[in-house]
Amino acid sequence: MKIILTHEVSGLGTVGDVVDVKDGYARNYLVPRGLAIRWTKGGEKDVEQIRRGRRIREIATIEQANEVKSQLEGVKVRLKTRAGDAGRLFGSVTPADIASAIKDAGGPQVDKRRIEVAAPIKTLGAHQVSVRLHAEVAAKVGVEVVAA
């Protein structure tokens, strides 16, 4: 099945790419989650608008990515959340929580879809997350989770 990606999907492509995938993958995963739309002749016209929007939001060069990386790595991110007596959180810390905490700490605006959390953050303490800024540049950000 031919689809148009509306979000970046690891191992498949970036926004605006037209790719062929298995029918079940598109029908059961990509389309329901809003990561892709079905390809049509009319949809092909939308691809250019999607790509234009991506170019505006995206960090275009490696130099820009390195500047943002240095800003991110210089920010001390503290995230207050509810936790139990043993230090376990009620739920977990999401990439959206981390993105807003970076912004509140004085860091640059980061898209939550670019934040990669290796393992779910479910305890208090210091954790490392990766922010994919460019295909070749990723920043490591330290997040300290404290009880509210």
Rank of each mutant, 00 (worst) to 15 (best):
G13R: 03
G24I: 06
G84P: 04
D23S: 14
E44M: 14
Y25M: 06
R27F: 01
W39N: 03
A65V: 13
R88L: 11
G34I: 05
N28M: 07
G24M: 07
V21E: 03
I59M: 11
R82V: 13
K80A: 14
E48D: 11
A101P: 09
G87Q: 02
N28W: 13
K45V: 02
K41T: 09
A101L: 09
R52I: 08
G43I: 04
R82N: 11
K45S: 11
V31F: 02
V68D: 03
E48T: 05
K41N: 12
T61Y: 04
K45P: 00
G74L: 04
Q49D: 03
R82K: 15
A101H: 08
I59V: 15
A60T: 12
A99E: 07
I56V: 15
L35H: 08
V93L: 06
I37N: 06
D97E: 10
R54G: 01
A96L: 14
G16I: 00
G42N: 13
V68F: 06
V77C: 13
K80E: 10
S70V: 10
L89K: 02
E73Q: 09
D85R: 10
R51C: 00
R33M: 13
L12G: 00
E63A: 15
G16R: 00
T61E: 05
V77S: 10
E58H: 05
I98R: 04
E73T: 06
S92L: 08
L89T: 03
V18N: 08
V31N: 02
V31W: 01
D17A: 15
T40A: 12
R55L: 14
S92F: 09
N66E: 15
S70N: 10
P32Q: 12
A65Y: 10
G34A: 12
